[in-house]
Design a protein around this nucleic acid. Structure first.
Length: 892
RNA sequence: GGGCGAAUAGCUCAGUUGGUUUAGAGCGCCUGCCUUACAAGCAGGAAGUCGGGGGUUCGAAUCCCUCUUCGCCCACCA
């Protein structure tokens, strides 16, 4: 037996570190790929190496750890695979900002030196992230930690690129993509996020060449792109313009002649119904120009720095200007020339870079794309067949809609930090061959030298392989065989498109099987104003800070209890005491329960299995039954990903039932030598053990610590102790019912004492009229408990009440309680209370009577429902009659 | 333009397929207690026409319709 002494206050900081070390020393997090046990695998959504973790990670990783610890205790071979993401643009931006402070750009530093610089930054940040995960108790298998730019992982990424290319699912295309002028890279559709914005809609006059007095008005939000116009288009059925087809107009200011054509894509109702087509600066215009029978050029008038180009089409005074300045000056010039008809405010959406919030520019360039339609098909089918399930379900629809009209994925980025694209171009102009291969060939077949593509891959093009590349794929490793597919994926709904959907696609394509079967989408952590927590808003909460102040368990409990069914969790960054009070208080309560038990277990404890159930008291049978209910409910809730329900179930079991009732009941028994004491100690230890097991996935540190102090052999860690099974033999409805009677009697007496302000230490008498023999037996067997907890000297069960004034109450089962008050009673107050009570009962009786006299109800409702209503009616009638009697006796 | 979500006590939210609920919890509030595990505690208590309106049903916070207010996602009306 270990020490029975615990420090009076719970100090998480010292305990948590030591406990984590014990888990590591015992190797309980390390998964065995040769185990006979059923695997259970979660791969971590790899945090970006750029930043330290925030509260959102705190929530996300706590939920994963809850699942992993639960399944580990259940006997599965649990693997939680940790790692980090190189986060292409985000990380490159951070390091660029660092060297900008030194007055340099990445081009000054040079590619190799810059990448080296990023690596050293990443190595320092990456270890902080892993330490943070350990601090919140994450039971990851650290021996399998991965990074998306690891050598082995990179091989998988390159292999995937080459494979898709050879399968004709990946190609180099020339088209208009989203370009971030600040990051100077292309972006995928998902990376260019929409933002609402009020802009100006400029109505511009284009003069007709063959009829100079007449002009055509075109509405646009971007007049500066007009120099890149190649034609105007109207809808073929638009009669307003039917005479214009085949004629031509002059671009204002540059006086370049462009034709007028028709296209189905033009909306007749928008603007003037006439569209300016600027193929190099609008993806739709690019398509329209491609489809058009007209022979159209694609002039570029805005460059990669969002400045006007210096081609002939652009007026000299505008060349080299930034896009905003160019717009301003273009509008002024138009106004001067009398070519601006009007300007109106216009609500629309613009796309911004998801990393730096800069407005993206449509930009015509060569990029690599993945053909997504063929990859999406099996991913869609799997969802529709129910092979992959989303929790909460609604996110499945979001996933489905996206896959249904998925578009090709631009995967090349004009960055230096990332996986270099494995494509080489022949430097001989006459040959011009492109070679895609896993390793660099020396020369082109034609003998000329080769030049590797300068670009790197989208960071998501590596993370979409995470569920299997982390296991060693493309090698057929034991890990791949044993741990694929994974089981649950726990992440945020904001990356369903970026990551979840693409993982499912790559899983089917490269592994022939889904990567995981359940996707749990946790909510966002928000502040009191419902804003996302972010660095820029300064409303973030550092998980480490919370761990230092209140402990990891308090943090974990708080976020788990607050996250019902994927709902957002609100926390106040300015008031951590309040935000984490629930977890902190519960941890403290738990600690004190532990302290009480340990200081009261000086006598030997008999195993529960050796106890004669026939000698148990009512309270023992009751708490054992409640314990079994807690086991069943907790297991059910965890199986269904109902995290907050799990938290609530254990909380109320431990606090309301174990602490407030059972411990109070057994206090006098624990030190006794006879069977009553022996049983109390035994049951208390059993109940505590079970509660600690149930709570361990949520609050691993404090439960492990308390576990180690409990009597018995504690060499085995709680983390790998088998999950409690439901023992139906302990379920005892009779005991539960009877103990409720005891609870309600004690409660009723306490209530009467409080109402009449009876001094707390004054002993009183209670006269009870039991409504049945069952109630009488229950109260008789628990007489001592009732006397002690309700501070009574006499409990009279004869049903004979003395002729004096007193307070009374009716128990839920219809029994009545009368407590004489002597001089303390306030007759008027008591009369008011009783008549209010009777009125309430009358109202309820009216309702239930109506229900029961309704043939429809009696005939059609299930028999047990009807029976319940009858019982209600009976009980309430008795209560009402009893009250009437009381009122009369008080002379009201 | 489509789609989704939210609205329940002063605050933050539970309420799983309609019926073991006279709608719950935590915080806050009121009353009384430093009862030798815990004042981060104990006991008792007040507080809600479940956003408005209509419907289905024997029965609705729960299902349907509609309106109002907020939030999110998607979409080639420039």
């Amino acid at each position: 037996m270990k020490t029975l002494e615990l420090p009076p206050t719970y100090d998480p900081s010292t305990i948590e570190r030591a406990i984590y070390q014990r888990w590591m020393d015992a190797g309980v997090f390390t998964a065995d790929n040769e185990s006979d046990r059923d695997p259970y695998v979660i791969v971590i959504p790899p945090p970006n190496v750029t930043d330290v973790l925030h509260m959102g990670h705190g929530l996300n990783n706590t939920l994963q750890d809850v699942l992993i610890r639960f399944e580990r205790m259940r006997g599965r071979e649990a693997l939680w695979l940790p790692g980090t993401d190189h986060a292409g643009i985000a990380t490159q931006n951070v390091v660029e900002r660092m060297i900008a402070r030194e007055g340099q750009t990445r081009h000054d530093v040079g590619r190799d030196a810059f990448v080296k610089r990023v690596w050293s930054h990443v190595e320092s940040k990456g270890s902080i992230i892993l330490d943070q995960l350990k601090a919140i108790g994450a039971s990851c298998d650290w021996s399998r930690t991965r990074f998306t730019l690891d050598e082995e992982y990179s091989r998988a990424v390159i292999k995937v690129f080459v494979t898709l290319y050879n399968e004709d699912l990946l190609y180099r295309g020339h088209r208009v993509i989203h370009w971030c002028p600040r990051c100077s890279t292309s972006l995928s559709d998902e990376e260019a996020e929409f933002h609402d914005r009020t802009a100006q809609l400029y109505h511009i006059r284009y003069r007709l060449c063959d009829e100079p007095k007449r002009h055509v008005v075109v509405a646009t939000t971007q007049p500066e792109t007009m120099f890149g116009d190649v034609c105007l288009m109207f809808h073929p059925e638009d009669e307003r313009f039917s005479d214009l087809k085949g004629r031509s107009v002059l671009i204002p200011l540059s006086d370049l002649e462009i034709p007028i054509g028709t296209s189905d894509h033009v909306e007749q109702d928008f603007g003037t119904g006439m569209l300016k087509v600027t193929p190099a600066h609008d993806a739709n215009d690019f398509d329209i120009a491609n489809e058009s029978p007209l022979d159209l050029d694609r002039p570029v008038v805005i460059d990669e720095h969002a400045k006007m180009t210096d081609i002939d089409r652009v007026p000299v005074s505008l060349r080299g200007l930034d896009r905003d300045e160019a717009r301003k000056q273009t509008v002024e010039l138009l106004e001067k020339a009398g070519l601006l008809e009007r300007v109106e405010p216009y609500e629309h959406r613009v796309r911004k870079c998801y990393r730096c919030n800069t407005m993206v520019e449509p930009f015509l360039s060569d990029q690599w794309f993945v053909k997504m339609k063929p990859l999406a098909a099996p991913a869609l089918a799997a969802y529709r067949q129910g092979d992959i399930r989303f929790v909460p379900e609604r996110w499945g629809k979001v996933y489905e809609n996206w896959l249904e009209d998925i578009r090709d994925w631009n995967i090349s980025r004009q960055l230096w930090w990332g996986h270099r694209i494995p494509a080489w171009y022949c430097t001989s102009e006459s040959c011009g061959k492109t070679i895609v291969a896993e390793s660099a060939p020396d020369r082109c077949e034609c003998g000329a030298a080769l030049r590797q593509d300068e670009d790197v891959l989208d960071t998501w093009f590596s993370s979409w392989l995470w569920p299997f590349a982390t296991l060693g794929w493309p090698n057929k490793t034991p890990d791949v065989r044993h741990f694929y597919p994974n089981h649950s994926m726990v992440t945020g709904p904001d990356i369903i498109f970026f990551w979840v959907a693409r993982m499912i696609m790559s899983g089917f394509h490269f592994m022939g099987e889904k990567p995981f079967s359940t996707v749990y989408l946790n909510g966002m952590v928000r502040d009191t104003q419902n804003r996302k927590m972010s660095k820029s808003l300064g409303n973030g909460i550092d998980p480490l800070h919370v761990v230092e102040r209140y402990g990891a368990d308090a943090l974990r409990y708080t976020v788990v209890a607050g996250s019902a069914a994927g709902a957002d969790v609100n926390l106040d960054p300015d008031d951590l005491d309040t935000s984490f009070a629930v977890g902190r208080n519960f941890a403290n309560k738990l600690w004190n329960i532990g302290r009480f038990i340990l200081t009261n277990l000086e006598k030997p404890v008999t195993p529960i299995t050796a106890i004669d159930a026939g000698q148990m008291e009512l309270a023992d049978r009751w708490i054992l039954a409640r314990t079994q209910r807690a086991v069943t409910e907790t297991t059910k809730a965890l199986d269904a990903f109902r995290f907050s329900e799990t938290a609530n179930t254990i909380y109320h079991f431990l606090w309301d039932e174990v602490a407030d009732w059972y411990i109070e009941q057994v206090k006098p028994r624990l030190g006794q030598d006879g069977p009553s004491g022996e049983i109390a100690r035994s049951v208390l230890v059993h109940v505590t053990e079970t509660a600690l097991k149930l709570l361990h996935p949520l609050m691993p540190f404090i439960t492990e610590e308390l576990w180690s102090h409990l009597p018995g052999d504690r060499t085995a860690l709680l983390a790998i102790t088998p999950w409690p099974v439901s023992q139906s033999t302990w379920i005892n409805q009779e005991a539960e019912r009877r103990f409720v009677t005891v609870q309600s009697l004690v409660g009723a007496v306490r209530s009467i004492r409080a109402e009449y302000h009876v001094p707390p230490h004054a002993l009183m008498r209670a006269y009870v009229t039991p409504s049945s023999n069952d109630v009488r037996d229950a109260l008789t067997s628990e007489m001592d408990t009732i006397r002690r907890l309700a501070k009574l000297e006499i409990v009279d069960l004869t049903g004979q009440e003395p002729e004096e004034a007193g307070g009374n109450a009716v128990l839920p089962n219809g029994s009545t309680v009368f407590v004489p008050l002597g001089d303390a009673i306030d007759v008027q107050k008591e009369c008011n209370r009783l008549s209010a009570e009777r009125d309430r009962l009358e109202a309820q009786l009216v309702k239930v009577n109506a229900k029961l006299s309704n043939d429809n109800f009696v005939g059609r409702a299930p028999a047990d429902v009807v029976e319940r209503e009858r019982q209600k009616e009976k009980g309430w009638t008795e209560q009402r009659d009893a009250l009437s009697g009381k009122l009369k006796s008080l002379g009201c």
